[in-house]
Every structure is written in structure tokens, then in C-alpha cells.
Simulated scan of single mutants.
Amino acid sequence: MNKVIELSGPGAVKNLSLVVRDPGMPRHGEIRLRQTFAGVNFIDIYQRKGIYPLPMPAILGVEGVGVVEEIGDGVSHLAVGDRVGYAGVVGGYAEARILPAWRAIKLPADISDSHAAGSLLRAFTAHMLLFRVHAVSLGTKILIHAGAGGLASIVVPWAKLLGARVIATASSDEKAQIAFGYGADTVIIGRDADIAKAVLDWTDGEGVDFTIDGIGEPTFRASLEATKKFGTFASIGQAGGALTSLTATDLSPLRSLAFHAPSVMAYLSDPVRYNAVTPVMIHALKASTEIPREILYPLSDAGAAQTALENGRTTGIPLLVI
């Protein structure tokens, strides 16, 4: 039997069910992966809600780790028994799945299954942000929201290695200490904090060069005010609500900033880019000194894992143990 979590239609977690589905045999250029862990991300929640539509029924999950158990024709760089991870393609909430072979990343021995399963997508996202959306270098000032979150655990130390200065936000003192542990230079604490003022004070009234906002509407206005002219604003999610107040006026020449809504799924859809970025991303993961706490859920509790992440009850990385 091959158990999967199937989404019957867009909506609440009640639409997720544990069912049995045959993954089939790999075709040309594919492998079948017997998974050990699958990551749980906000992308999964957006897909479940229909914000990012998928054909139904669907199997969510866009990153995971496992062992190759079958290889299709035309695959020469992998062997049965190889331990690999992947990111950027749906179907991860499953005991076994078919995967394009070019997505399979051979994992070094010093990166565990669980670490890889919870970090690959975030590491690719960090690369997209720090190298493609805004070229971060010595002296770049960055504001990142959810400074204790999984993405920040990779973005912050990587940005620091590039010579950036980082100001983060956190909802509590406990989460602030986690953000400091990742390398943040300073942390704005509290959901009601005056973020824009704190950032402007920190930058002597100038604003940051690069804002990374995955919260959405609750922090949007403050993020705009905190970003300097000719800076970059990256809207990478809407954990707190969609950007319902965004208008063309917000992006007028008076602000003179670059606004991005980058998709890591689109970033990873190009095999050439995927394979070129992979070694850099793996190096960044190995260089991380602070690994977030892993919060483990059985596959059957995928709905609970999503709920905890969606409601901000996680201080760490939620993973499905398969």
C-alpha cells in the first residue's frame, strides 16, 4: 500500500484525507522515491485554499527526502538506493512518489534527511531572494519579517555571510532570541510594534535596501515606509492576509522602489537553473550553524501540521514523518 494525503477540493483542512494510491512506475526520465520525510510549507496552505490553484484531487507537498527505489529509462546519474531530496514539485505528502529525475538532489552525509526535507525549498527561496531579486552585498541593509521562521533561518545567516546587516521582526521575546541566534543585528519585538519607525531609526532615517515580507496585509504599509527609495520590496507570502489594499499609487515614482512578488516554484521550474543553484544552496545549508527545531507529525496528521503553521503556533520547521 502507498498512503498519501489527498486534497479533494480547495478549502479547509477537512478536505485532506489519508487514502491509498498506487504511485505507478517511473517513465522515461523519472524515478520512484520511497520517502522518509516531507516538508510542510505555506505554499501547501495556499494551494489547499485555492489561492494557488491545482487540478483536483491533488497531493500537496513540494519538498521531501527519500531513497530511490525504481529508475525509469534514460536516467544515468542516479542508482537504486541513492538518498536524495527535491524541491519545487507537488506530490510530497506520500509514502512513495514519482519524481522527475532532474529534481533529485544527492544529499551529502552531513545533511540529515529531516534537515534537508525542511530546508531545501527555503534554501532555494533564499538564493532567489539574495541573488536574483536583490543582489545582496557588503553593507546591504535588509528587513525580514518572521525573523524566527524557517526561511529566516537560512536567509539571515546567508545574508550575513554576504556582508549584509539585518533587522528582523518577531512576535515575542522568545522568538526574538531565535532571530538573534540566526544572526540578526537587531529585532523589532511585538505584533503592535511601530516597525517603520524602528527601521528608520536603525537606518538613520534612510530605510532599508531590501525588505522581505511574507506576512502580507498586516505589515505591508510598514514595510513600504521602511524601504528606501530605489530599494527593493519582495512580497513572498500572505501568512497574515492578502494584500487587499495594494494600489498602483503605492508603487508610484514617489516611492521609486522595485516591487517583486517572486515565485520559488517558477524559479525552480527551469532544470538548468535548478541544477546550477543546487551546489550553492547545499553549501549554504552546510554552513548554517543554527538549525531550527524540527516539529514532527505523522503523515496522517498533515492537517494538524498545516493548521499549526497557518496559525503561527510553530517555532521551528514542521515535518511529516513517513
Rank of each mutant, 00 (worst) to 15 (best):
A87R: 07
G88C: 13
V89K: 14
V89Y: 12
V90C: 09
V90L: 13
G91D: 10
G91Q: 12
G92L: 12
Y93M: 09
Y93N: 03
A96S: 15
A96W: 06
I98M: 14
I98L: 15
I98W: 14
L99C: 07
L99M: 12
L99H: 08
L99Q: 06
A101K: 05
A101L: 10
R103G: 03
R103P: 00
R103E: 03
R103M: 14
R103C: 11
A104W: 09
A104R: 08
A104E: 11
I105A: 08
K106D: 03
K106T: 06
L107R: 01
L107N: 04
P108D: 11
P108N: 12
P108T: 04
D110L: 05
D110V: 01
I111T: 03
I111V: 13
I111L: 15
S112K: 11
S114W: 02
A116P: 00
A117Y: 06
A117C: 08
A117E: 03
A117R: 02
G118M: 09
G118D: 07
S119T: 12
L120C: 06
L121N: 01
L121Y: 04
L121E: 00
R122A: 14
R122N: 14
R122H: 13
A123D: 05
A123L: 10
A123E: 04
F124K: 06
F124G: 01
T125E: 09
T125G: 08
A126G: 11
A126H: 02
H127N: 13
M128D: 06
L129R: 04
L130Q: 05
